[in-house]
Design a binder for these strands. Structure first.
Lengths: 238, 238
DNA sequence: GAAATAGTGTCTTTTAGACAATATCAC
DNA sequence: GTGATATTGTCTAAAAGACACTATTTC
């Protein structure tokens, strides 16, 4: 047995991870949640974000635990994952000992993430606006708030919004998801200029989205791009 | 005894907090470190960042633990503290069980933070550039890297650099610390214009820094300011 | 007055913002 | 051609960038 695994066993907190998985569908954000069973020992019948206990006998690190939490609720790996914040205190899980909750943000594209309907929990993609009005299990309201804040702020200056789109997308689609995230209308012409000045996205040559209009050039995320989306920030000073 | 405090005791990780306390002195950043004793069970004689074990029988949450870690090394509370990231894995403390390390950034102004020289550890403010070349205890190299990255990036668009200055400071001092943090020269005239357009700092009426030149108006941080430092980002697109 | 640094002004280039004009498709 | 939407262009206002100029102190 390794050093001090016994010595402090009663002094260690429970540690769990919680993921906030977002998709963008029908022009709005949706969040994956599950409904806790009526037989749950805590927070029965309440909605909760995908989560799991961080068990050091089974998992080597937090990222693994996060993937595990997602795997029990969805069938495909999500393309984007980012640690947000670690919450602590007895309010997280009042019936147990002091708990640490390491929160993650996950972004996915609807077509690539299927719910596991055979799971014992009811999982569903719920409209963000609906979810924000509900009282969630554990400290998941504050987790959701912080994830949302992070997502909105990163939409300003990184390529994060591309993770919510299909592999190939038009500039219009990118603009619309960005407008949603930063809650501000953007000038079409300006938006195109800004994007074209960076190599944040790459033209997919010869690929167009057709329809009852002039075909739209398709683009994909440039995974090599690590800098800022825009040389200047996007929103107007408030 | 609360629910499951025994049940999973062998499955919980050790949790610790680590703080990266910065000051700005002699035109450079310095970091508070201590030297681990030759009798330490792990990482003897190596430099380490202030840290402590998160003991749920003594501490209610992580912020408390962080203040505790600082209190054992310095005599005064630091004005700025921010959680950065939670590291996990067996590499953090190889001789013990899997460890979580919750990292914090702390900013202080030299005059207000005294080292505790009567402490059993050797504590000192070490030049960042010197420290970056050393092999530190635990995973403190990666912690330091990430703290630095956060500090640099926040210097771009928040008022974070004011926490490294005296309560009252001149615009020149603010510009110099900002230039250091973002590693770029800033135009004096432009810098003044930008600042004056926000209410990020407040003029301390009638207070001037005197010397062998025209007296310089003193300013202080506007704690009510929550927005961005600048309407546009500071650095040039790379 | 000289030295030193605070603070202001001026001019050019770049970016933002608004919106008009043109292009290319389905029908 | 008509309708729809992609894409480009044009004009004005605002901000950035470079640098010169003026102000106020100590000596």
């Amino acid at each position: 047995m390794t050093y001090n695994s016994q010595k402090y066993s009663e002094r260690r907190p429970n540690v769990g991870v919680t993921v906030v998985p977002f998709i963008f569908e029908d022009k709005e954000l949706k969040v994956l949640v599950y409904k806790r069973g009526s037989d749950s020992d805590v927070f029965a019948n309440q909605y909760a974000l995908p989560n799991c206990f961080f068990d050091i006998t089974e998992m080597g690190n937090l990222d693994e635990a996060t993937k595990n939490a997602l795997a029990t609720k969805t069938s495909v790996e999500v393309p984007y994952i980012e640690q947000i914040h670690t919450f602590s205190g007895s309010h997280i899980d009042p019936d147990r000992i002091t708990t640490l909750n390491v929160a993650y943000l996950a972004l996915a594209q609807k077509d690539q993430v299927k719910d596991l309907h055979d799971h014992k929990f009811e999982t569903k993609w719920m409209s963000l606006n609906v979810l924000l009005k509900k009282e969630l299990a554990f400290n998941h309201n504050e987790v959701l708030e912080m994830a949302l804040q992070r997502l909105n702020s990163k939409a300003e200056y990184t390529n994060i919004s591309t993770y919510l789109l299909n592999k190939n997308f038009t500039i219009k689609e990118l603009r619309e998801v960005t407008e949603y995230l930063i809650d501000e209308k953007l000038d079409n012409s300006r938006f195109r200029d800004r994007i074209k000045k960076t190599d944040i996205i790459l033209e997919v040559e010869g690929e167009f989205q057709t329809g009852v209009q002039r075909p739209a050039q398709l683009y994909c995320r440039n995974d090599k791009f690590k800098g800022y989306f825009y040389p200047k920030s996007l929103t107007k000073p408030k």
